[in-house]
């Protein structure tokens, strides 16, 4: 019962906060609302027994990515934008498309038949703790994608240097 109450709070608050995020005129307010959104999502992960994901969500999104956002806003001095028109002329098209997608998703979930369960049941994950479970799967069965991700990170580093360096020889 209490778990359900927490779920309802996190879910509704997440939706409300994201709507506030996209409707703010002041970029700084929008970013701070997004920070709230990240915390609520982390709460949802906690309710799913995924404490590792919750921690990662807070450390990476609320920590690292948010700081980047704030830096960019401060460097660009986006306060000027407050006076400009906030939405383009075709904003209602976006709203219609989003509502359409939302309807399709909601309709599809009515017909959702959950598939087979793997041998990682909730009881087993709780017993072994979520972090240990992810580690075991990641370094055994999903070793190959994990290695490929290291290449992706390398490309990201190269890309950041290529795009940000002042003068390339």
């Amino acid at each position: 019962m209490i778990e359900k109450a927490f779920f309802l709070y996190f879910a509704f608050a997440a939706v409300a906060v994201s709507i506030i995020t996209v409707t703010r005129r002041n970029v700084m307010h929008a970013v701070l609302c997004m920070l709230l959104l990240f915390f609520h999502l982390a709460g949802l992960y906690l309710l799913l027994n995924a404490e590792f994901l919750a921690a990662v969500q807070i450390i990476i999104y609320a920590g690292a990515i948010m700081v980047l956002f704030l830096f960019v806003i401060m460097l660009l001095n986006l306060r000027e934008d407050v006076k400009k028109v906030q939405y383009g002329r075709l904003w209602f098209v976006g709203v219609i498309v989003v509502c359409g997608i939302l309807l399709a998703m909601a309709g599809a979930y009515v017909f959702m038949v959950p598939g087979q369960r793997s041998d990682w049941t909730i009881g087993r994950i709780v017993a072994e703790t979520h972090t240990a479970a992810i580690g075991q799967v990641l370094y055994t069965r999903y070793m190959f994608p994990f290695e490929v991700v290291s290449l992706i990170l390398l490309v990201a580093v190269i890309g950041a240097i290529v795009l940000a360096k002042r003068q390339l020889k």
Binding site: F144, P145, V148, V149, I152, V155, G159, L163
Partner: peptide, 25 residues
Amino acid sequence: ENMIVLYVGLELMSLSTYVLAGFLR
């Protein structure tokens, strides 16, 4: 042969091509 592998392959390809497209800064 697996959705996860497909996804990481796709990301590796796309990320490199994004940077290549903007190579002439």
